[in-house]
């Protein structure tokens, strides 16, 4: 862990402020993600977790502060120009293309990559998510919730991101599917993907993560190694229900 931390961070968020009109949703957040880490961002509903990820991805613009990937400032680029730099967001609520087939969804994930590389990546995804292979030609809107989540994650991976950001991947899924999603996250991590994970399910998120940040109403209130936060009294009271 300490060894990893000495290198320059892959993602560096520097004191960002984000507004929705007059609403000050993010009030100065800084965080880092180092290569090969899983970092989780936990917090109650409305704390500003999604806003933070959407800002990093370029869907929202910070009024102040910077987002850097590998030392390169991303501010003002816009989401579509950030994707090819190696950052991919699997958004809250999945937002797969309901009217397209599973295969088309995956192909769209590789939109910024050269055509000749796509079929190898498709095979890779079908190997990792065999259910998607079975449903390759099915219209995505007809998949079950768990399958849609897998498709959303696979689609986000199709751009070959250096950093994968997952916004509540377990939302609305049955417990057995939640476990499955988390084991996929562990597998992805093991295969070398760096992950920034948002979760309501703090228990599972803290178990899978290396480090964690706790957010409350637009601010980061706590941070540290995941095991430490798991033991922390305040965290246990607020997020682990014990």
């Amino acid at each position: 862990m300490t060894e990893i931390m000495q290198a320059a961070p892959l993602l560096k968020v520097n004191d960002i402020h984000v507004y929705y009109g007059a609403i000050h949703a993010i009030k100065g957040i800084s965080l880092e993600v180092y290569e090969n880490e899983i970092v989780t961002l936990i917090g109650a509903n409305g704390a500003g977790k999604s806003t933070t990820l959407n800002t990093i991805a370029g869907l929202l613009k910070p009024r102040q502060g910077t987002v850097e990937l590998n030392g390169e400032v991303l501010n003002g680029l816009g989401a579509s120009k950030i994707v090819p730099k190696g950052l991919s967001l699997c958004p809250e609520g999945r937002r797969i293309f309901q009217q397209m087939t599973v295969r088309e969804n995956l192909e769209m994930g590789a939109f910024t990559r050269p055509l000749n590389e796509i079929s190898a990546s498709l095979e890779e995804m079908f190997e990792r998510f065999p259910r998607l292979k079975e449903r390759e030609k099915q219209i995505a809107g007809t998949l079950s919730g768990g399958e849609q989540q897998m498709l959303a994650m696979a689609r986000a991976l199709m751009s070959r991101p250096k950093l994968l950001m997952l916004d509540e991947p377990s939302m609305g899924l049955a417990p057995i599917l939640v476990e499955q999603i988390f084991s996929i996250i562990s597998e992805l991590h093991a295969s070398g993907v760096t992950i920034l994970l948002i979760e309501q399910n703090a228990q599972m998120a803290l178990h899978v993560a290396n480090r964690a940040y706790v957010m409350e109403t637009g601010l980061i209130t706590m941070q540290g190694p995941a095991e430490e936060l798991l033991q922390n009294d305040a965290v246990q009271k607020a997020y682990l229900g014990s």
């Binding site: 816009g78 579509s80 120009k81 994707v83 991919s88 958004p91 937002r95 293309f97 769209m108 986000a156």
Partner: peptide
């Protein structure tokens, strides 16, 4: 076509289309 598919994506979900790297 690639552009045609990009259009279908933008039509369904502009934000998700941007996240694919599509220039809306």
């Amino acid at each position: 076509t690639k552009m045609g598919k990009a259009m279908r994506c933008v039509s369904e979900d502009r934000g998700a289309a941007e996240l694919m790297g599509i220039n809306v």
